[in-house]
Design a protein around this nucleic acid. Sequence first.
DNA 1: GCGACAG
DNA 2: ATCTTGTCGC
Length: 237
Amino acid sequence: MDEYKAEIEAGELSVGQARMAQEALRSRVRVEALEEARVQRVTGVDASYAGGSAYAAVVTLDYTTQQVVEWASASAAITFPYIPGLLSFREAPAILLALARLERLPDVLIVDGHGLAHPRRFGIACHLGVLLDLPSIGCAKSLLIGEAADLEAEAGSRAEVRQGEELLGLALRTRQRVKPVYISVGHRVDLESAAHIVLACCRGQRLPEPARLAHQMANSCARQGEAGVMTRQDPPQ
DNA sequence: GCGACAG
DNA sequence: ATCTTGTCGC
């Protein structure tokens, strides 16, 4: 049942096909508790752009010690425009390459972007989680859809993100007096598990450490042309 | 038609 | 996301 997977990895879908792929794949998302005892490794996922290419970085931390275990990066030529709601078709090709370079896949991904808090309930966190059948959490810095009530100033305070009657995610204050992050289910987690894991990874900073490090690494890779790390899809000139 | 709109 | 340095504050 891996229709679309090859095309997604190769960045070959049209805008219309991309929306259809989301509609087709959304039913595969599973919402279930992720036992903390089963989480030993957490990987932060992010991408940056430069010179017509997307640079993805993935950083795996030990969940208990929050120490970096391994990391990887990859680049891919950009083949898809940025369209709100279709972010994954722009970033997933490079991200999937980077994840494939890890020695071990983690127990859960923390993705820079939304999961179910998406127009078709299939944001990039769902997309990556379903394609890899790996637990994943969406952790975005702003809302794509839905609304959240104001939250208290203390770290750990939360407010539901909802669209009408539908609960889509949580606005989560990960640090005192900073803007909240928006958590949503990607795949094989539930909202409570997701919020708990994210909070456990925020060592006094707004973004969970794996995501923060992935963001830094993606930026430096983009600036340095990935520092000599090359990809079949994006060969050196 | 108008405004909103992850990264 | 990106174009871009220093700077104010905890």
